[in-house]
Every structure is written in C-alpha cells, then in structure tokens.
Design a protein around this nucleic acid. Structure first.
Lengths: 204, 204
DNA sequence: CGTCCACTGCACAGCTCTGTGCAAATAGAG
DNA sequence: CTCTATTTGCACAGAGCTGTGCAGTGGACG
C-alpha cells in the first residue's frame, strides 16, 4: 500500500479532483446546485460523490477551505515585507487576483444566506489584515477617505468582486483587469489617479 | 362595493402590506426564506399569505417590482437636469441611498443564483443610464479611470452595496453614509478626493 | 342582530433533495 | 486471468417546501 503511485487510486483520485473542480464551477453558477447536478456535471453518479464526501456540507467545506487558504496566502504574500501601505494594498490586490478563480466560489457563497456566514468568519484574518493596512495608510495620510478603515475594507472587497464579474461578463480583459483593479482600489481610497497608475505600473 | 374606504378591506389591506414589509426583511436575511417563515414573521398563517399572493414567485415579484420602480425613479430624479457628470453621479447616489431599504432586497436576491437573473434585466435601464453618465464624464476628462464605463458602473454598484452592508453591520452611521458613498464613488472614478468632498458637501 | 369577508387550522398530494444500503458491473494491478 | 477497489444502478426512508381544498371562527358593517 505504498508503491501504488499510478494504480487504481489514480482513477479514484482523479475523480475526486474532478468532482471538486466541477463542483466549484457548478456552485458558482448556482449556489444551490444539488448533489445530483454536481455529480452529473462531473460525469459521475450521485452515489459516487457520496463515496468521496460524506455530505454536501463536507464537499462545500473542502472547497471553501481550499479557496480561503489560497486567498489568505496570496494576500499575505502580496504585502510581505512592503512598508508603504499604498504599495502593499496594490500588491495584495494583484496577488489575490491571481487566485481569483478559487475566490469566485467564495463570492458566490459568501454573499448568500445567513447559513453560509461561516465563510465570512474564516476570512476574518484576511479582512483584519486589510483593515490594519488601511488604517495605517489613513493615519499616514497616504489615503484620503471619509470612510473609517473597516468600511473602506468592505468597499475594496466589493470592488474586486465587481471587477471579477465584469471579467466574467466580458466587459474587461482578464489580464489587465488585475492592474485596473489595483488602481481602482487605490483611487477609491483617495490616492490620486496619476499616483495610483504610476505605482501599479511600476509593479507589473 | 364602492363606499368601503375603511371597512373590512382595511384589515385585509393592512395584512397585505405587512406581509410585503415583513417578507422584505425576511428575504433580506435569508433569500431562501419559506412562505411559512414569512407568514409566521408577519403574524399570520401560511394559508393567509396564499390568500393575497397566488405563489411565492408572485410575492417576490411584487416586492422586486416595487423596489426596482423606486430605485429607477430615485436614480432618474437625482440626475434630472444636471449637466455636470460628477454632480449627476453624486446626486443619483444620494437619491438611491434614500430608498436603500427597498434596494436591499434587490441586493440579496440579485446576487443569488441564476434563477433570479430577471432582476438584473429589469435594472438594465438604470445601469444603462449610469454607463452613459460615466462615459460622458470619462470623455470630458472629469473622471479618470483605467476602466471602461461599463466596468466602472459595476464598481459603483458594488460600492454602494458594500456601504449598505457596512451600515447593516454597524460600521457606519446611516445618515452620513449616503454622502460618504457619493464621495467614495466619485474618488473611485478618479475624481480627486478634495474635489469630490467639496462637491458632495455643496449638495447636502 | 345578521351578513359577509378575511383569517384560521388542518389535511393532502406532489415534488425535490439528502443520505444510506446493497448487489452487480467494471477496470486496472499483479 | 484473477483479485480488488471503485463505480454503478436502484431502491428506500426521511425531511422540507409548495400549492390547494374545505370547514370553522371572528370581527366589522349595515
């Protein structure tokens, strides 16, 4: 049970991974997608899905955990060792944008009913980091906004989400969208448009 | 059947209105709230709700229609006869903010599954007007953003939504929030923070 | 006081979804 | 070719929701 790198397990593992991938897409399309819908979309029978995940909640949980992990890691990496708040914000937006695909499931689920409130909880550390960043920037005068840092964090989160939807809807090129998102987030915080543009251009 | 202004009908009408009000709140809390939940919250039996609305869809539809109407009217009134795009944007944000309570149901439902896509359709006129406004502003150089007008419209929509949530979560005072929303939307479009602040202050 | 209307309470059929059990088919490893 | 893990197909119980029917109750109005 140690030398089975490409054995039967591979097919099972492939199925498991494919189910997760398909579930991501399917739940993005419809947060209420049933186990049957997901199974069929994955080219598998419902019963098989239950062979990999004991319940719908477990399946979604696995998805959410992975996505949260990616986002948190990207966000942290983006602002790692950067002292200027504006640059840190720009970098973290760009980094999060890279894992946007995984983030989308959070978007679809987090904005849903009260039941899925646990997701917001799990994202708390990320949000907290953002708020701290914004507070520093506001105190340093790098940012200029009538909003307190926590409210500004909400705006930033929703702005990124809005631009992801814009990409989904074909209004925006996915490649430049990341940079545009960074610029927009900075200007929303009160950074002059020219300064924001230059700063982000410097990071590409 | 013509002179019953305060008769039995009043109680029935009062019930109908209360059901609509409560449904608004309940669906905001949980977009999947059942007819039973809504009925109980309205202090009425499920069967009674079906006496007023033939189906769940009809109830939600009535709600959505009313909300869309309010928002569209407010948005139009806000930019009525204003020639400066920046001021028009600021005024329309402030006007929409006034009917925010009705708008919230749209927020909760519109961001839900594909099934509720009809809502986005119904809001198309409003969105269109926003885009036109933004396009004018971008061309005139009043706004400065790397985003095309339609994408910027998405950002504005989500920004307003974000600040509504911030109010809901107690991060922001509802009274000043409207003005802060207007300022934030303008700065996100590239208007210098000082200019945006002055402009909005002038409108209070 | 009687009439009428809305509301109630219950019961019902139909649908969809979840999670489980079990025998049979299948596909890859040795 | 045989063995084994995986997948399949079907069937089932349980739960929740929707929409409807119908007899009974209560309050307002003339």
């Amino acid at each position: 049970m140690a030398a089975m790198s490409t054995g039967i397990t591979s097919r099972a593992d492939a199925n498991r991974r494919r189910i997760l991938d398909v579930a991501l897409a399917e739940l993005l399309r419809d947060p209420d997608a049933s186990m049957d819908q997901i199974a069929r979309a994955a080219g598998v029978v419902r019963r098989t899905v239950y062979g990999h995940f004991p319940s719908r909640e477990a399946l979604v949980g696995t998805l959410v955990d992975g996505a949260v992990e990616s986002v948190a890691a990207a966000h942290a990496a983006g602002r790692d060792g950067v002292e200027d708040p504006a640059e840190a914000v720009a970098r973290s937006v760009l980094a999060v944008w890279e894992v946007a695909d995984r983030y989308r499931i959070l978007v679809a689920l987090a904005q849903r009913s009260v039941a899925m409130e646990g997701i917001r909880d799990r994202l708390t550390p990320v949000r907290q980091a953002s708020v701290e960043l914004l507070r520093q920037g506001l105190e340093a005068g790098v940012f200029d906004s009538p909003l307190p840092a926590p409210a500004l964090a909400y705006v930033h989160e929703q702005t990124v989400i809005a631009l992801m939807e814009a990409v989904n809807d074909g209004l925006l090129n996915a490649e430049e969208a990341g940079r545009s998102a960074a610029v927009t987030v900075l200007t929303a915080a009160g950074v002059p448009a020219s300064v924001a543009t230059e700063l982000v251009a410097k990071l590409g």
